[in-house]
């Protein structure tokens, strides 16, 4: 009797499982396997064990791209969450035009990354026709126009700025939702106990938002680490690899140089690294909240 109902359930689930297995599980497994072969487009595929990973250890371009990826991921995640918290506070305060502001804040989120990239390409135009250069020169902050996206010093900070701008709305909206769940009585009690604005933020807002901050940090971390379209449209990884995020690096290996096996190995390593970091972070946060 029990067995039959199990089969019956399987029958119900099966139609939904088939596409998942076909289009998700099989390609995923194949991708993982490719990372253990020497496959180059057009050539024979041979299993080569850990050879790709051994090469990766000596591949200085990979390491420098990983460093770029680390700066980018931490920079954008931090910016998105910290500024997002500020923005959420602002939107939560009973200010004039609050409804409109809440809608407008969503605009960058509604744009696909490639469109964001194209738009910021114009903002960053290298000569005085670029709005950013024009404004900064008018304000007397710079004397010469800066070639933002092609300068060794400015390219990475520039794309991080765009990355923060693009991810800000989502962080802000999620944090705003969190803010609205904090009971007003807590603030009243805190102010009765003599807490000022900063004190209330420190002892009421932050602890109440903790689970939400934890989840938004881990989500944004994964998304930012895997960013591709935005940076690709802005710099293609240039100048001289200064903005070559790990994803761009893997893409170049696969599509430009045809080293599919190595590109897949890079993918394996990246998934591993990101999951490891996220698990460690979540464990630490959860432990703290239990304590």
């Amino acid at each position: 009797m029990k067995r039959r109902s199990w089969l019956g359930q399987l029958g119900l689930v099966l139609p939904f499982l088939i596409p998942v297995v076909l289009f998700s599980v099989i390609p995923l497994l194949r991708g993982i396997y490719l990372g253990f072969t020497d496959y180059r487009f057009g050539f024979e595929m041979r299993f080569n064990g850990l050879e790709n990973y051994r090469y990766m250890l000596t591949d200085s371009y990979f390491w420098s791209s990983f460093r770029v990826g680390a700066i980018w991921t931490i920079g954008t995640t931090l910016g998105q969450v910290v500024l997002g918290l500020g923005l959420a506070q602002l939107l939560n305060a009973d200010l004039f035009g609050q409804r409109l502001a809440r809608i407008l804040v969503l605009v960058p989120w509604a744009m696909p990354p490639v469109i964001r990239g194209l738009m910021w390409n114009m903002v960053f135009l290298p000569d005085t026709s670029g709005p950013l250069n024009y404004l900064l020169m008018q304000a007397g902050m710079i004397s010469q126009p800066i070639n933002w996206l092609n300068s060794v010093a400015w390219a990475l900070p520039s794309i991080i700025l765009v990355g923060i701008w693009g991810g800000l709305p989502q962080s802000a909206i999620v944090l705003l939702a969190g803010l609205q769940t904090i009971p007003k009585e807590l603030y009243e009690a805190a102010s009765l106990d003599g807490a000022g604005v900063l004190g209330q933020f420190r002892y009421v807002t932050l602890p109440s938002l903790k689970p939400i901050i934890t989840s938004i940090v881990s989500l944004r971390f994964m998304w930012n680490f895997n960013a591709f379209g935005l940076v690709w449209t802005l710099t293609q990884g240039g100048p001289g690899g200064r903005t070559r995020l790990p994803m761009l690096f893997a893409y170049e290996e696969g599509f430009r140089y045809g080293n599919a096996g190595y590109a897949a190995a890079l993918g394996n390593v990246m998934v591993l690294v990101v999951s490891l970091l996220v698990v460690l972070y979540l464990r630490k946060e959860l432990k703290e909240s239990e304590a």
Partner: peptide, 11 residues
């Protein structure tokens, strides 16, 4: 050549 050009020669 493609890889040498992107990763070495250009920078």
């Amino acid at each position: 050549y493609a890889e040498w050009k992107d990763r070495v020669a250009t920078p």
